[in-house]
C-alpha cells in the first residue's frame, strides 16, 4: 500500500470531470421538480444526448456542435414527456420510466454505426501562466468546457430560483398549481419550459460522458448515471448548492476508490465499488435528517397532474 502515490490535486481535478455528467443532469432535474413535475426519464434523455452529441461531433468534427445537438436531442425527447403528461395528463412516474426505456432503446439503434469510433477531441481550457499555477491550475483552470458550463448552470439556477420573478413563478407552479393558475400564470407553459430545460441539461450531461469523460460511444453507457442524478436531487432537498455537493461527492468517491485500488489498499474491491453510492446517500440523508424540514422543501405539487377545470 502506497497512499503517497495518490495526488490530491489530480484527485480533485479528476473528480470534477467525473462528476460533471451527473451534475448537469441533476441541476436540470432540480428545475423540473421545482415546477412540480417528476420526470424519471433522466437516464433516457442523457443517453439520447450522449449519442446525438457523439453523432453530431463525429459528423461535423466540432465538439461544440456536438454539445448543442446533445442539448437539443435531450430537449426533444423531453417534449414527448411534456406532451404526454401536460396535455394527456398521463402519470408522471409511468411516463418517465417509459421515457428511460425508450431512450435506451432508441439510442442503441441510433448508435449502431458509431461503436468503436473516435470522436474529435474537445478543447481544454489552457490559459498561459494561469493554467500552470501549481495546485490551482490543474484544479480550476485546465478543464474541459463542460465542467465550467455545469458550474455556471448551478450558479444560474440558484440565482434564478432565489432572486428572480421567473423563479418565483416557477416555484409557485410547483407548490400549488391551482393557486398559480388562479393568479393567471400559465401552469402548463411554465412546466413545459422547465421540462425542456431539464431535457437539455440531461442531454448535455450525456454528451459530457460520450465526448469528454470516456470519450466513446457504447450502448447503455450512462449505466445508471441518470438515476444517481435523480437520487441526488431528492437527497439534496432540492437545493442547487447541495446538488453540487452531492454530485462532487459521488464523483470524488468514485475516483478515490479507483485510486485506492491502484495504490493497493487491502479493502475488497466489491466494497470500494459500492462506496460512491453508499457514501453519497448517507451524507445527504444525514444533512436532510430533519424530517419536517426536508418534507417542507419538496415541491408540494410534485408529480400531480394539472388540469385547468376551474
Amino acid at each position: 500500500m502506497d497512499l503517497s502515490s495518490i495526488s490530491p490535486t489530480l484527485l480533485v481535478a479528476s473528480l470534477m470531470v467525473a462528476a460533471t455528467p451527473i451534475l448537469l443532469a441533476a441541476i436540470g432535474e432540480l428545475v423540473v421538480e421545482k415546477s412540480g413535475v417528476l420526470n424519471l426519464g433522466v437516464e433516457g434523455m442523457m443517453i439520447i444526448g450522449a449519442i446525438a452529441g457523439f453523432a453530431a461531433a463525429v459528423g461535423t468534427g466540432s465538439p461544440i456542435i456536438g454539445f448543442l445537438c446533445a442539448a437539443f436531442g435531450g430537449a426533444a425527447l423531453s417534449l414527448v414527456f411534456a406532451l404526454l403528461t401536460q396535455f394527456f395528463l398521463s402519470n408522471h412516474v409511468a411516463t418517465g420510466l417509459a421515457l428511460t426505456l425508450f431512450g435506451l432503446g432508441l439510442s442503441a439503434l441510433m448508435g449502431q454505426s458509431y461503436i468503436g469510433i473516435k470522436p474529435p477531441a474537445s478543447a481544454k481550457l489552457d490559459l498561459p501562466v494561469i493554467s500552470d499555477i501549481p495546485v490551482l491550475g490543474p484544479v480550476l483552470f485546465s478543464h474541459d468546457i463542460t465542467v465550467y458550463i455545469a458550474l455556471a448552470l448551478v450558479a444560474a439556477v440558484w440565482w434564478f430560483l432565489k432572486y428572480t420573478r421567473g423563479g418565483l413563478i416557477l416555484r409557485a407552479v410547483g407548490e400549488s398549481h391551482d393557486a398559480a393558475h388562479a393568479l393567471g400564470y400559465k401552469v402548463v407553459k411554465v412546466r413545459i419550459m422547465a421540462i425542456m430545460f431539464g431535457g437539455a441539461c440531461a442531454g448535455l450531461g450525456g454528451a459530457a460522458l460520450s465526448l469528454v469523460r470516456v470519450p466513446q460511444w457504447t450502448e447503455g453507457m450512462t449505466a445508471g448515471a441518470g438515476w444517481i442524478a435523480l437520487a441526488i436531487v431528492v437527497f439534496a432537498s432540492w437545493k442547487p448548492a447541495r446538488v453540487l455537493l452531492g454530485a462532487y461527492l459521488f464523483g470524488g468517491v468514485a475516483v478515490l476508490q479507483l485510486n485506492l485500488q491502484a495504490a493497493g489498499v487491502s479493502i475488497p474491491v466489491e466494497y470500494l465499488s459500492m462506496s460512491p453510492y453508499l457514501i453519497t446517500i448517507i451524507v445527504l440523508v444525514v444533512m436532510s435528517a430533519h424530517r419536517n424540514k426536508a418534507a417542507l422543501n419538496a415541491p408540494a405539487a410534485l408529480g400531480r397532474a394539472f388540469h385547468a377545470s376551474r
Partner: peptide, 25 residues
C-alpha cells in the same frame, strides 16, 4: 499497479481505470 474493472467491456469504467493509473504515475 493493478485495477480490477469487473467487466469485459465498459468503456466508461475502462477509461476511468486508465486515467487513475496514469495519474498514479
Amino acid at each position: 499497479k493493478i485495477v480490477w474493472a469487473y467487466t469485459w467491456f465498459d468503456p466508461t469504467k475502462e477509461a476511468d481505470a486508465a486515467k487513475v493509473l496514469i495519474e498514479q504515475g
